[in-house]
Amino acid sequence: MLVGGIVGWEEGRDDLFNPSSPRNRDDCLEPFRALKALAQQKNIQLHTLDVLQQQGIQPDFNLYLESLPVISIAGCKNYLIRFETELTVPINGDPDYLNQFNGIYTWDQELLSNHSQNGLAQQTKAIPKFAMRYPNVLPSGFQVNAIVNPGFANRQTLCVLIASNRHANVIDQRELYSERVKAIRWFERNAPKDFALYGNGWKVPQKRLGTLGKLQYRLEKIIPFITGSPVFKSYQGVAQTKFEIYAKSKFSICFENARDIPGYVTEKIFDCLFAGCVPIYWGEPAIENMVPKDCFIDFREFISDPDPYRALYSYISGMSEARFKQYQQAGHDFLISSQFAPFTSQAFAESILRPIEA
């Protein structure tokens, strides 16, 4: 029997596999329960590393879910599951760090390519790379045989944005954190009754990078503090569940944390599709090769306009219900097709265990 340890995600004590964990919002831990279940089928014992250490069991391999310092254990192989880009987690772009691992799981097409001229790919060429996708959890409210709230009925909000108030951790023109704020501000100024903002951290100004950014952030806090006025007037608080909010909304600003990074597709577009909400997407440069183009609105089609958000608003506010239903049907058809299979929790589990079994 092989024994594997899990390193990362804050809590130990096998909390990662606990469906009742307070961290299991929107059942986000389901992919790790699927991983553990599949491991058991393959006679692989899987626990968080602290549990193994308490039991005096030495792992044959460790899976790092976060880019944490590598723990050296004799005879133990270490693998990194590289979820985020180097824009959000800078060490994910550090070849000295990546070269410590026996293998790296990634969605990054540059790193996975044997012929890439990308600097990081070249500097980590000796380290085996294994393809994976971000796993996506089917919400309990999703129905295989029916679209959630078809048409405009029961969808009171024209457009919604669900995200946390964060910033990139390196200077890079590809980051989209600040673009989300541009979208929020446009709707607050021009269509406040047709927009709602949800997520963590929006009671304070836009989070910013660097010393000057932090100074600007502190200055921007002064007037709202003195006047008691909200920083973001569209802010509705933290979403109880994303599915609940999306099921009541027609459209969602659905931007990745960064754009133009091949392979970088997170849960954001799928969360919308599950609930019959039409995503307004920007991120992966070839997203239509993964998710059919008739499932979503590509924001890049509007960015050449002098006022892209006005052009977008004109499009979505003027859309007929019949056209909206076409988007919904295309999204639902995709989710119940084999095209969605690579993005499931089961596919994630299989992609992680396949190289370990070999």
Rank of each mutant, 00 (worst) to 15 (best):
M1G: 10
G4S: 07
I6Y: 11
I6H: 11
E11C: 13
R13F: 01
D15P: 04
L16E: 08
F17A: 00
S21H: 00
P22A: 03
C28K: 15
R33F: 01
Q40Y: 04
L49W: 08
L52W: 05
G56M: 11
Q58H: 04
F61A: 04
Y64R: 12
E66Y: 09
P69H: 05
C76G: 06
C76E: 00
L87Q: 14
T88A: 14
T88M: 10
P90G: 05
P90Q: 05
P90D: 05
G93R: 05
G93M: 11
Y97E: 06
T106G: 04
W107S: 09
L112E: 12
N114S: 01
H115I: 07
L120R: 08
T124K: 13
P128R: 11
P128L: 09
P128A: 10
K129L: 09
R133S: 12
P135S: 09
V137M: 13
Q143T: 09
A146N: 11
V148Q: 14
P150T: 07
F152C: 12
Q156L: 02
Q156D: 14
Q156G: 04
V160C: 05
V160E: 04
I162H: 05
A163S: 13
S164N: 13
H167G: 02
A168D: 08
S178T: 10
R189V: 00
A191Y: 03
F195I: 10
G199H: 08
W202C: 09
K203A: 06
K203H: 11
Q206N: 08
K207I: 06
R208D: 02
T211I: 06
Y217D: 01
R218I: 01
L219Q: 15
P224V: 14
S229E: 15
V231P: 00
K233V: 09
S234A: 14
S234I: 00
G237Q: 12
V238Y: 05
V238E: 09
Q240V: 11
K242I: 05
F243A: 01
F243V: 09
K248F: 03
F251W: 03
N257R: 14
R259H: 10
R259G: 02
D260Y: 08
D260S: 15
E267D: 14
K268S: 01
K268C: 05
F274A: 05
V278Q: 01
I280D: 02
Y281S: 08
P285W: 02
I287A: 13
E288N: 11
E288I: 06
N289D: 13
M290Y: 09
P292E: 08
P292N: 12
K293F: 09
I297W: 08
F299D: 03
D307I: 12
A311P: 07
Y315H: 15
Y315D: 07
S317F: 02
S320V: 02
Q326F: 04
Q326N: 15
Q329P: 00
A330F: 00
I336F: 09
S337W: 08
A341Y: 10
P342N: 15
S345L: 03
S351D: 15
S351T: 15
S351Y: 01
I352H: 05
R354F: 07
I356L: 15
A358K: 15
